[in-house]
């Protein structure tokens, strides 16, 4: 592939921005770093989610399933393997699991896929619990020396990988194939694209990333319980953040994650007794007022400017 001057400039700017983000722990080691961890976590999750769901329009609610698998990989392996190996292992397991799920379900479309992915978290949770229950208590405590700054850097590195990977996929034959599938799957099939293979391949990306995110965050939680590791709310948060930003651009989810994290923070600090209620209202407002997210809003604004300029 060939890089234009704009590409190189964008890459350099992105690298610079990430470099600046990496300095956060030196500036503040407390509250803002904590928010930074949340933002980095959701950026990795929402961007990888949008890589698949953006072009294909398949709404996946499987994030919690892969995330939970990742936390358990760390929980079960922390005594025997180094942390970096666990993160890679979690990514591998997440990708394999996603491939299996993809093979089974991606021939389905629309609502069948949504329901299956929603059930997947519960399925995997029960499977892991069954194993734990039959083998005695294992993998419940994750005691490491990894602190908040370390977790933040891990997540930031993962986010960088996701963005780079997404950018490369967007330029590849696979990305092109997926855009065609998203526009019209029948046309894609008739053009000789193996639609099932393309979808399964891309579905492995959010699977692997969510599992790696879970593996990285396990030391932060210290104690791993199925009900906490597989909390379904995570899947919905990722979807709403990606939609708020806009799933049609690589950087779209990022502009959703940052305001949404601050919104959640403001809600939970100001409405301690109605947090869930206010978050629910925020969801509704976003869906009604910004159906295409900030990216859509920006496109509309640009479109209007161009039009008035032309006149």
């Amino acid at each position: 592939m060939s890089l234009t001057a704009t590409d190189i400039r964008n890459l350099c700017l992105s690298a610079l921005a990430l470099g600046i983000c990496a300095l956060l722990p030196f500036g503040d080691n407390g509250y803002w770093l904590g928010l930074g961890v949340t933002i980095a976590m959701f950026t990795a999750l929402a961007t990888s989610w949008a890589l698949f769901s953006g072009p294909t329009h398949y709404i996946s609610l499987a994030t919690a399933a892969f995330f939970g698998v990742g936390t358990y990989v760390t929980g079960l392996g922390i005594e025997t393997l180094p942390f970096w190996a666990l993160v890679i292992l979690a990514g591998g397991i997440g990708a394999v699991l996603a491939a299996l799920v993809g093979l089974a379900t991606l021939r389905l479309s629309g609502v069948y896929f949504v329901i299956f992915t929603l059930g997947l978290a519960e399925l995997v949770r029960q499977a892991i619990t069954w194993v734990q229950n039959n083998s005695g208590q294992k993998g419940l405590y994750v005691l490491t020396d990894l602190d908040e700054a370390g977790i933040y850097w891990w997540l930031l590195g993962l986010t960088a990988l996701v963005l780079l990977g997404g950018w490369m996929i967007g330029r590849s034959r696979l990305g092109f194939a997926l855009r065609i599938i998203g526009d019209d799957e029948t046309v894609a099939a008739h053009s000789g694209i193996n639609t099932a293979r393309a979808k399964v391949l891309l579905f492995m990306v959010p699977g692997a990333v969510a599992a790696m995110t879970g593996a990285i965050l396990a030391p932060r939680y210290v104690y791993i319980e199925p009900s906490l590791a597989f909390a379904p709310i995570l899947s919905f948060q990722v979807v709403i953040m990606a939609l708020l930003g806009g799933a049609s651009r690589l950087w779209g989810p990022l502009v959703g994650v940052i305001p949404f994290t601050f919104l959640l923070e403001a809600v939970s600090s100001n409405f301690p007794n109605q947090t869930t209620l206010v978050i629910g209202i925020a969801f509704l407002v976003i869906v009604y007022l910004l159906p295409k997210g900030f990216v859509g809003l920006l496109d509309a604004v640009l479109h209007r400017i161009n039009k008035t300029g032309a006149v």
Binding site: Y31, L35, R220, L228, A231, I233, E265, S268, S269, T276
Partner: peptide, 17 residues
Amino acid sequence: EYDDQTNPGETIKAVQR
């Protein structure tokens, strides 16, 4: 007082806050 929604991520945020 804060509600952590039975979510360890929220507990962490609230304690930090």
